[in-house]
């Protein structure tokens, strides 16, 4: 009996393919991205339905399905297309077999449905699995990329380093900030670290607590932290929370913090009396720029 149904489906595969394509094309206009060209869509459909049929013929061989899924995942086909395709296939195949055998007692109908389910389900499971593995891979790559961005240290001059923080700070990132901060202080021989929180959307007790801990650890290494980039609404919120920031020097802007850092490291910025060099020369852009030279000469005379 089992074997028979499979044969019926395979003998009628042309009809199944035809019906399937009709339904899938109807779904396309409503659901899938418009930028898939008609030709590509049709080619892919042919291949898809053949993969399903072959997999059924081969008694659920997974190799064809795997090759197919690798390719469509790489091409970025939406998962909804795959799911729809398989669900439509199930419906069309069930209908085709039922019209073919004209024996319609309910017991038989449910047997047909069960059989078709058994063919289609492993394919659905495998494809969804392949998709999720690929997503997990993407997510883990993005995680690494995000981590690289999460606590950068910029040594701006001898002994002064800046850590600009952008985005939400969760406990994992807070740990990462701490590690990077300590490592950076050692590596760059920093005396002062400016932590810029302009881009941090919420400073709650958890964030404050981690900032305090990081500052304390930096202090133990013999350096100082200055917290900068405190937006007015953040300042008010911190006051309401009743958090005491007196142990951690703060400045509203990076510029003010930098001035303080200069003071601490016994440095100052001196403005030169006359500009002895042309800006382009300083930037190393002066080669082949005679025209600009000529112009600036004109201005000075």
């Amino acid at each position: 009996m089992n074997r028979d149904l499979r044969d019926i489906a395979i003998d009628n595969s042309d009809r199944i393919i035809q019906e399937w394509s009709k339904e899938i094309n109807r779904l396309k206009s409503a659901n899938y991205t418009a930028d898939i060209s008609k030709e590509l869509f049709e080619n892919n459909n042919d291949e898809f339905v053949n993969v399903i049929l072959n997999s059924i013929k081969g008694n659920g061989s997974t190799k064809i399905v795997k090759d197919f899924s690798d390719r469509i995942i790489k091409l970025g086909w939406p998962l909804s297309y795959i799911i729809d395709g398989l669900l439509v296939f199930r419906k069309v195949t069930t209908n085709t077999i039922l019209t073919e055998i004209e024996q319609a007692d309910s017991e038989y109908i449910s047997e047909v449905i069960n059989n078709v389910d058994v063919w289609v389900e492993p394919i659905i499971r495998q494809l969804v699995n392949e998709y999720s593995v690929s997503w997990e891979h993407v997510v883990s790559l993005q995680r690494i990329a995000l981590q690289e961005l999460s606590a950068p240290l910029i040594p701006v001059m001898d002994n002064i380093t800046i850590m600009p923080l952008i985005g939400t700070i969760d406990t994992e990132r807070a740990k990462f900030i701490m590690e990077n901060l300590l490592e950076g202080v050692m590596q760059h021989n920093a005396e002062v670290v400016l932590i810029d929180i302009t881009g941090v959307p919420v400073v709650d007790t958890m964030v404050a607590h981690h900032l305090f801990q990081a500052t304390e650890a930096v202090r133990l290494l013999g350096a100082k932290c200055i917290l900068v980039g405190i937006r007015p609404e953040i300042a008010q919120t911190i006051v309401n929370l009743g958090i005491n920031f007196s142990k951690l020097p703060t400045k509203s802007t990076l510029k003010k913090g930098f001035m303080l850092a200069l003071e601490i490291t016994n440095k100052s910025i001196v403005e030169m009396q006359d500009k002895s060099q042309n800006i382009d020369q300083l930037l190393g852009l002066d080669k082949g720029s005679e025209r600009i030279h000529a112009n600036s000469d004109l201005k000075t005379t």
Binding site: P201, V202, V203, D204, T205, M206, E233, Q236, T237, N240
Partner: peptide, 17 residues
């Protein structure tokens, strides 16, 4: 306003945490 938005957001953060 922005200040109250920050207050509300922070309060939610505390409760949720």
């Amino acid at each position: 306003g922005t200040v109250d938005q920050a207050r509300i957001t922070t309060a939610i953060s505390e409760l949720a945490r």
